[in-house]
Design a protein around this nucleic acid. Structure first.
Length: 254
DNA sequence: AACCAGGACGTGA
DNA sequence: TCACGTCATGGT
């Protein structure tokens, strides 16, 4: 992280304890979040902890997913589809896709299955997730890439080279689909850390990512849980600017 | 009825 | 590098 005036207020205590305290506080308040959600679990009537705006498919305190290549690919697709879109819409899109595939007697959510769909059909299915023209093409790009990947674990730079995969999507794919400890920074994360004066507004994605990674043990479960907790917390206090000051919970512990 | 949602990309300064 | 327009549906 760049050495600047951004955390002057924490010079005495240090950034590390702050990053950990926030995590402890969030986990204590909300409990394990069970990311990344899988539609398979939601069809099975899987766990649904009281979660804002979302349906089912979560698996709290179970960090063993994905367990199949199909689940792995679904996470990758979900990461793309959820760009600037709420998860509930992505879930609809994924379920549409699965319905579509089962009509074609395809019972596995695979790259080959996605590639077998003609563009217009694919677009119609993912329509609820928005940007369906771009996302349809980019889904096929991802499908093509993933089918040729084999059992490799992709490098971050490789993911970033795919059209439609930016920093957050790349990190989400690494963290949740490939179980690599790569911290995810999203708009919510940035809002929270700026609001708490841990960084200023112009701090870059990579700087915020580094701040978390440098001050946390390199632990997959912690990385997965932390990002999910930040999202859950932000949904409660950071959707409207007017209530951001209400985040006394985290301000109090700093 | 604006505004937002688990962003990314192309463009021109 | 970086600010800005664009992509688009659906929920609040």
């Amino acid at each position: 992280m760049k050495k600047s005036a951004q955390n002057l207020s924490y010079e005495r205590t240090g950034t590390r304890p702050v990053i950990r305290k926030i995590y402890d506080c969030l986990l204590d308040s909300y409990g394990p979040q069970g990311w990344w959600p899988l539609t398979e679990l939601c069809e099975a009537g899987g766990t649904n902890p009281t979660k804002t705006g979302s349906v089912q498919g979560y698996h709290p305190a179970d960090y063993t997913y994905p367990q199949t290549r199909s689940q792995q690919f679904e996470i990758i697709c979900g990461a793309l589809l959820t760009q600037n879109t709420s998860w509930i819409q992505v879930e609809k899109a994924l379920l549409n896709l699965k319905d579509l595939l089962s009509l074609k007697k395809i019972h596995s959510f695979s790259p080959e299955a996605i590639l077998s769909l003609d563009p217009e059909t694919l677009k119609k299915a993912i329509r609820p997730a928005g940007y369906y023209n771009q996302k349809a093409m980019r889904l096929k790009t991802l499908a093509c890439w993933f089918s040729e990947l084999g059992d490799q674990i992709p490098a971050r730079a490789e993911l970033l080279s795919l059209k439609g995969v930016g920093p957050e999507t790349a990190d989400s794919i690494l963290l949740y689909a490939f179980k690599q400890p790569s911290f995810v920074v999203d708009a919510y994360t940035k809002r929270i850390v700026t609001n708490l004066d841990l960084v200023d507004e112009k701090t870059s994605y990579n700087e915020i990512k580094a701040m978390f990674e440098e001050n946390l043990p390199e632990d997959l479960d912690v990385y997965q849980e932390y990002h999910a907790l930040l999202v859950e917390h932000a949904k409660k206090y950071y959707q409207k600017k007017s209530i951001r000051d209400n985040d006394v919970m985290l301000k109090d512990i700093l």
